[in-house]
Design a protein around this nucleic acid. Structure first.
Length: 246
DNA sequence: TCTTCAATGACGGGCCCGAC
DNA sequence: GTCGGGCCCGTCATTGAAGA
């Protein structure tokens, strides 16, 4: 199977297949052994071998791009087809402000872009990227791990994440009474790197999937850490991704 | 000079809690 | 039970600094 590593991405995969593939990657099982079978089940007409080969090809392509060995064909729009389908829909809903700004045509009325909350899935990818690429390499994290977010967004998210961690740390040093007094909601930032195992090997030879543990058996729903037992809304941020804001 | 990152503040919106 | 004010959170925009 290793000889398929340098194979270009299989062109027989339709956009629909690719969407299913990405979804399967995001929600795939934790254990590597049964992973490909699970993913193949989610993509009609594809065998586990095909899924694995496709995954490795995609991974290889990403690494090539990352290494600067591949010229990017105007990826602003192209990536959207394959990786940010859902996000694009939201962008359209708010008038695709990004593309307008990107063309250099200044907007007459500067309208604040509608905030799209980070999903748990995105946050977990972010954490994995943080572990793999380290603090500061937001570009790589945004390109490889959280393709639905720009480097700026990743950096901003990281800032709030670290602030949150620092705040939690501070609270832990206070006594129980003070802790209870402070109202703190559950937040997506309560998911820390300790909850996200590193599974990405940046070496091209590795076939370790970058998102193999995302969600994993946990899947959707209740996040593991609930650091504020005093909060009446345990597991509240379960809805952060889905509930949206309005 | 250009690109990238970090820091900061503004803003929108949800949630909590007390008053009624 | 409901309503409203204040608090808190998350995202976006802007600006300056640093490095290539």
């Amino acid at each position: 199977m290793d000889n398929q590593k340098n194979k270009p991405v299989d062109s027989t995969w339709t956009n629909h297949d690719r969407s299913l593939f990405l979804h399967a990657v995001a929600n795939g099982p934790d254990d590597i052994a049964g992973r490909w079978e699970e993913m193949a089940n989610a993509i009609p007409g594809k065998t586990p071998e095909e899924v694995k080969a496709y995954y490795e090809a995609v991974e290889h392509d990403l690494l090539e791009i990352e290494a600067g060995r591949v010229e990017l064909p105007n990826y602003n729009d192209d990536i959207g087809d394959e990786f940010v389908v859902t996000v694009k829909k939201e962008d359209e809903a708010v008038g695709n402000l990004d593309s307008e700004m990107g063309n250099g045509t200044k907007r007459v009325e500067k309208e604040r872009k509608k905030a799209t909350p980070w999903t748990e899935e995105e946050h977990r990818r972010f954490l994995q990227g943080l572990k793999v690429y380290g603090k500061g390499d937001w570009r790589s994290i945004s390109r490889i791990m959280v393709v639905t977010r720009t480097a700026t967004q990743v950096a901003s998210h990281a800032q709030k994440y670290f602030l949150r961690q620092a705040s939690l740390k501070e609270d832990n040093n206070k006594d129980e009474n003070k802790k209870k007094k402070k109202r703190r909601r559950c937040s997506i930032h309560d998911i820390t790197t300790a909850d996200v195992p590193v599974v990405v090997d940046t070496q091209p030879s590795s076939s370790t999937p970058p998102t193999s543990s995302l969600n994993g058996s946990q899947g959707r729903g209740v996040p593991t850490p609930t650091p504020t037992p005093s909060s009446p809304h345990e597991g509240q941020f379960n809805g952060i991704g889905s509930q949206g804001r309005g």
